[in-house]
Design a protein around this nucleic acid. Structure first.
Length: 217
DNA sequence: ACATTAAGTGATT
DNA sequence: AATCACTTAATGT
């Protein structure tokens, strides 16, 4: 992680990624109090049990959010894209809880970290900020329900396709750089099962397979 | 050329 | 669908 202070470039980036935060005073405050952070692909942004002092606004790139069970097995929950925030962190920081998820940079990612105390303060000061917080809560809640449906009711082949499509979306490419093993870990399945399902999808001309690569058709 | 890692496959539970 | 045992293929040194 690396801190940067490039206020001049920050404001337009902020405007572009979060057009709904259109109050000039709010943008000033965000640019002044927010910490701009850069992560390389694969960096752990937030880990289980860490105290949350900053609420992340994703400026650029994307973030994979994972949940871990008692046995240390991981499960993919959802992606955050630029323009998203993590409502888990809103909830956590308000209640002063520790993180119950792990966030990993899916690609090189820039994040604006807003110190917790301002999150609260700005809710009463800026309607645009309040709406933003409310809306990202709502969005994340819907997405989580969707994730639960997927895990509870969908078969592994559907989950696999969902996963690939989401991954293609956040990386903005049909050529997804990923190993079967990594997919298996994310979906909490065996590597062989993933390989076989991918093989089926290939026969159905839904994907093309390569080493360290899956291409959606 | 050799070692390592990723992927494919059949059998078993 | 998981696990095992094994093969084959791709890639790095």
């Amino acid at each position: 992680m690396e801190q940067t202070s490039m206020r001049e470039t920050l404001v337009p980036v902020l405007r572009k990624a979060f057009p709904e935060l259109n109050d000039p005073n709010l943008i000033d405050d965000l640019a002044r109090e927010g910490r701009c952070m850069k992560f390389r692909a694969g960096d752990v942004i937030m880990d289980y049990g860490e105290n949350i002092r900053l609420v992340p606004l994703v400026l650029d790139g994307s973030v994979k959010v994972m949940r871990e069970n008692a046995d240390g097995e991981e499960l993919f929950l959802y992606f955050l894209n630029s323009g998203d925030s993590c409502s888990m962190s809103f909830a956590c920081c308000m209640a002063n809880k520790r993180s119950s998820v792990r966030a990993i940079a899916e690609e090189d990612t820039k994040i604006l970290g807003v110190p917790v105390r301002y999150v609260d303060e700005w809710i009463s000061r800026y309607p645009a900020w309040k709406n933003f917080v409310m809306r990202s809560y709502d969005m994340r809640m819907m997405e989580l329900i969707n994730t639960i449906d997927t895990i509870a009711f969908k078969k592994l082949d559907e989950r696999l396709l969902d996963y690939l499509q989401q991954k293609a979306e956040v990386l903005k490419t049909r050529e997804i750089p990923v190993t079967h093993q990594q997919i298996a870990l994310d979906l909490h399945a065996s590597r062989e099962a993933i390989s076989r399902l991918l093989k089926q999808l290939e026969k159905m001309h839904r994907v093309e397979l390569g080493r360290n690569k899956v291409t959606l058709i």
